[in-house]
């Protein structure tokens, strides 16, 4: 079952572009990454899904319900953490969280306590006295306190120190193990890589690719770095699938895509000192898709 189903969602701000024909779906129990640079349309998509703004075209369902018509019913099951957190400055943290809980008509007090302890959040402080990172923690607690079925996170880690990010990721993984679906929007690719099963790449308001993280990696170049004891002949690497070959003294670097067996055989013929074969990180994959998209447009 798809928890989120987006079909041709379009949003224009007057003449300015917001998003254009965004289509993807998020399956139940999935951690779905939504990546793209700042201004690509991630927040616009999320805000449209949450009926904070209304679409110019297209439609979407969340948990099988229409995102506009059934918005209040949907929001009972959704926890949301925006990229920038703003709360009522004159309130204490505990009062804000109780206020947030009052919308769900269930007792969330033990969950609030548990989450606050995990995140090391002082419940008796006033919101206005909190640092940005601590406000973000308040945001995490208010997003999770009602045990939602779907968690929507828009650039959630900004302001959190690395230790707290890890705690936050652990929390998300625990929720996911309970069956909670997560839509994780970010421009920090390494965190998407760590957490997500599938990813949608968005650029200039349009979805460039929706793919499994593992497939993205499989379909991509591997980075080879070989150190030889004696200089190698460049002709040996005149080989299909090799790209960006660099030979400097006894060091050989190249990118390779294709069947690994022949290339490994060729490498075995060398007098090898050391070999590194690395997966490209998502950043490189991401840039690869961007380049491909741009080249495609140039050809058109």
């Amino acid at each position: 079952m798809n928890v989120i189903e987006i079909n041709g969602l379009t949003k224009h701000y007057g003449k300015a572009r917001g998003i254009e024909d965004v289509t993807f779906s998020v399956k139940e129990g999935e951690i779905f990454g939504f990546i793209g640079p700042n201004g690509a349309g991630k927040s616009t998509t999320i805000r449209t899904l949450l009926s904070l703004i209304y679409p110019t075209g297209g439609s979407a369902t969340i948990l099988g319900m229409d995102m506009i018509k059934d918005a209040p019913e949907i929001k009972k099951q959704v926890g949301y953490l925006p990229s920038e957190v703003f709360y009522y400055d004159n309130m204490k943290v505990i009062d804000l969280l109780n206020y947030s809980a009052s919308f769900y008509k269930k007792d969330c007090s033990s969950r609030i306590k548990e989450l606050a302890e995990r995140l090391d959040l002082d419940l008796n402080k006033k919101i206005e006295d909190l640092s940005f990172g601590n406000k973000k923690k308040v945001g995490i607690v208010q997003g999770l306190l009602h045990s939602p079925k779907l968690i929507i996170l828009d650039e959630p880690t900004s302001g959190l120190d690395p230790l707290m990010q890890q705690t936050f990721f652990d929390l998300l993984k625990e929720e996911n193990e309970k069956g909670v679906t997560i839509l994780f929007s970010s421009h920090i690719l390494s965190e998407v890589q760590k957490l997500c099963d599938r990813v949608a790449i968005i650029k200039d308001g349009k979805i460039v690719k929706v793919e499994k993280i593992s497939t993205l990696r499989e379909n991509n170049y591997k980075k080879f770095h070989i150190e030889t004891k004696t200089p190698a002949d460049q002709e040996m690497f005149n080989f299909e699938g090799i790209k960006d070959l660099e030979m400097e003294g006894n060091s050989i670097r190249f990118l390779f895509k294709g069947d690994l067996n022949p290339i490994m055989g060729r490498i075995a013929e060398l007098d090898i000192g050391n070999v590194w074969i690395e997966e490209p990180d998502l950043e490189e994959i991401f840039m690869h898709y961007y380049e491909k998209e741009d080249q495609g447009r140039e050809h058109v």
Partner: peptide, 14 residues
């Protein structure tokens, strides 16, 4: 104005 709309309007109320 105070940017709290994102908090309030994502609660289950019309």
């Amino acid at each position: 104005r105070d940017k709290t709309a994102e908090f309030l309007m994502t609660k289950p109320v019309t």
